Structure formats: structure tokens, C-alpha cells
Computed example of a mutant assay.
Amino acid sequence: MSPAFRLPPRPPIEADLAERDRFQALVRDSLPNVRASAEAWRNGLAAFVTLVGTAVVVKGRTTAADLPVGWRLAVTVLIGGGLALAVAGLWHALAAQAGSRSLAVTLADIHREYGSLDAFHLATAIRAARLLTRARRAVALALACLFAGIALTWWAPGETAGHDSGRLRVTYGTGTVCGTFVSSGGDVLRLAVAGQSAPAAVPLAGVTSITPVAACG
């Protein structure tokens, strides 16, 4: 039994026909508008990735070299992840601008899959808009990671910050002593060593090296 079709309550009026024509124009313009927006994002992202990548290559190693290992690892993960997300955003923007369909289609294929050319344009515009949304989200996450990585470089202690604690590793003729500097005099260097009540006395005549350290261990 064929489905029953109901007539609309009234015939279309001039306003209905005008709205239909405006909707068809909107459908035809949707794909060019989305791709134009995607092109602008692609160009901006390409410049952004180039600028940040150059800054990381030129200054990143020098900046990270002065950080403790744990902080350096965190900065590397954040900035590296930010760059990866920025590249992913650039890729999505490029796919939205250029289109993601690599196979040629015929009019018969479009009619079979979408029903009409307008529906095909609308579906293509929706796919491009979704790719552009992914690009924007990737860029937002990339900026968050990059800013967090940069903030860590501002607040992280330097590799040599702990050397100001006064701890020294002293190598002399009979071994090595590590402790906090107490005093020197009478050809003897005195260090407070953890676990010992009295400072260790190291004869300066037998010292072969003195190295400031962040911690003894």
C-alpha cells in the first residue's frame, strides 16, 4: 500500500516562494563561504606555526638547557604538544579549504547519494564546517599548551639555583665529602655533613676539586 500524501493546509504564497529562493541561494553560497573562512584560518595558522616553530628552534634549546630535568620534560611535552596540535589544526583547515573528497563523482552519483546538486553542496559545506571547527578547537588547545609551556619557563628554577645553598662536594686525597659550607681557616675546610654532629674537617692541602651542588646524594 503506497503511503498517503497530505496536501499542505494552504497553497504557497509569494512570501513562501521568496523564502525558498533565499534558502536555495544560502545553500549555494554556504560552501564558498565556509571555504573562504577556512582559507583565512589556513593562512593564519601557517604563519603561526612558522613563527612559533622558528622561535622554538632558535631559543627553545637555550631556554630549556638551564632548567632542571623534570621541569625541562614538562616544558618539552607542553610546547611539543602545542606545536603538534597547531599542525593538526592547520591540516584540518587545509582539508576544509581544499575539500576532503579525493574521488571524482558524476551527476548520477550525486543524485543517487544526495538526491540533488543543492543537497550535495550543502553536505559538502557541512563537512567543511566540521573540519574548520576541529581546526579551531585544535588551535585553542595548542595555544593553551604553548602558553603553559612558556609560563613554566618563567617560573621554573634554574639548574644552578640550588648551588646557592652552600653545599659543596669536595674531593681530596682520601675520598669525597659532601656537605654545607661552615667555615675555612687554618688550612682546613669545614663542612656540615648530614648524619654527623660535628663538621667534617677537610685539609685544604689535599683537596683536588671543589664542586658546588644542589644536593648531596
Rank of each mutant, 00 (worst) to 15 (best):
residue 34 V to D: 02
residue 110 I to A: 00
residue 99 G to T: 08
residue 35 R to C: 06
residue 73 L to E: 05
residue 15 A to C: 09
residue 118 D to N: 04
residue 84 A to M: 14
residue 26 L to F: 07
residue 85 L to G: 01
residue 53 G to H: 14
residue 50 T to S: 15
residue 89 G to Y: 12
residue 54 T to V: 09
residue 90 L to Q: 08
residue 74 A to G: 03
residue 56 V to D: 09
residue 41 W to K: 11
residue 83 L to D: 11
residue 73 L to W: 07
residue 121 H to Y: 08
residue 45 L to P: 03
residue 26 L to C: 07
residue 107 L to Q: 07
residue 91 W to V: 13
residue 70 G to Q: 10
residue 109 D to C: 00
residue 73 L to H: 03
residue 84 A to N: 12
residue 48 F to Y: 08
residue 80 G to W: 02
residue 24 Q to A: 10
residue 17 L to S: 05
residue 62 T to F: 14
residue 26 L to W: 06
residue 44 G to M: 12
residue 55 A to L: 06
residue 70 G to E: 13
residue 39 E to D: 07
residue 39 E to M: 10
residue 16 D to L: 11
residue 120 F to V: 07
residue 32 P to I: 14
residue 82 G to I: 05
residue 43 N to Q: 12
residue 86 A to C: 03
residue 99 G to D: 06
residue 74 A to P: 01
residue 115 G to H: 03
residue 80 G to L: 00
residue 42 R to W: 13
residue 37 S to F: 02
residue 107 L to E: 12
residue 100 S to K: 15
residue 107 L to A: 07
residue 64 A to R: 14
residue 80 G to F: 01
residue 106 T to F: 00
residue 65 A to I: 10
residue 45 L to C: 09
residue 48 F to T: 05
residue 30 S to W: 07
residue 27 V to E: 05
residue 90 L to S: 04
residue 18 A to Q: 12
residue 82 G to S: 06
residue 109 D to W: 07
residue 109 D to E: 09
residue 22 R to N: 02
residue 35 R to K: 09
residue 110 I to D: 00
residue 18 A to C: 04
residue 39 E to S: 09
residue 24 Q to G: 05
residue 67 L to M: 08
residue 37 S to K: 10
residue 107 L to W: 06
residue 47 A to F: 05
residue 25 A to W: 11
residue 49 V to P: 00
residue 77 V to C: 07
residue 81 G to S: 08
residue 67 L to N: 01
residue 24 Q to K: 12
residue 120 F to R: 07
residue 55 A to E: 08
residue 80 G to M: 00
residue 92 H to Q: 15
residue 18 A to V: 09
residue 63 T to M: 11
residue 77 V to K: 14
residue 21 D to A: 15
residue 23 F to P: 00
residue 95 A to S: 10
residue 71 W to R: 08
residue 111 H to T: 09
residue 76 T to G: 10
residue 63 T to F: 12
residue 79 I to V: 14
residue 82 G to Q: 07
residue 79 I to A: 04
residue 100 S to H: 11
residue 87 V to Q: 13
residue 16 D to S: 13
residue 66 D to A: 10
residue 111 H to N: 09
residue 21 D to L: 14
residue 120 F to T: 02
residue 72 R to S: 02
residue 58 V to N: 06
residue 46 A to C: 01
residue 52 V to A: 01
residue 108 A to K: 11
residue 31 L to H: 02
residue 107 L to S: 02
residue 87 V to N: 09
residue 20 R to F: 00
residue 70 G to S: 11
residue 50 T to I: 11
residue 106 T to R: 05
residue 68 P to D: 03
residue 57 V to M: 08
residue 50 T to M: 08
residue 49 V to N: 00
residue 121 H to W: 06
residue 115 G to I: 02
residue 117 L to T: 13
residue 111 H to P: 00
residue 116 S to K: 06
residue 100 S to R: 15
residue 88 A to T: 08
residue 35 R to F: 15
residue 21 D to G: 11
residue 52 V to H: 02
residue 73 L to V: 08
residue 98 A to T: 15
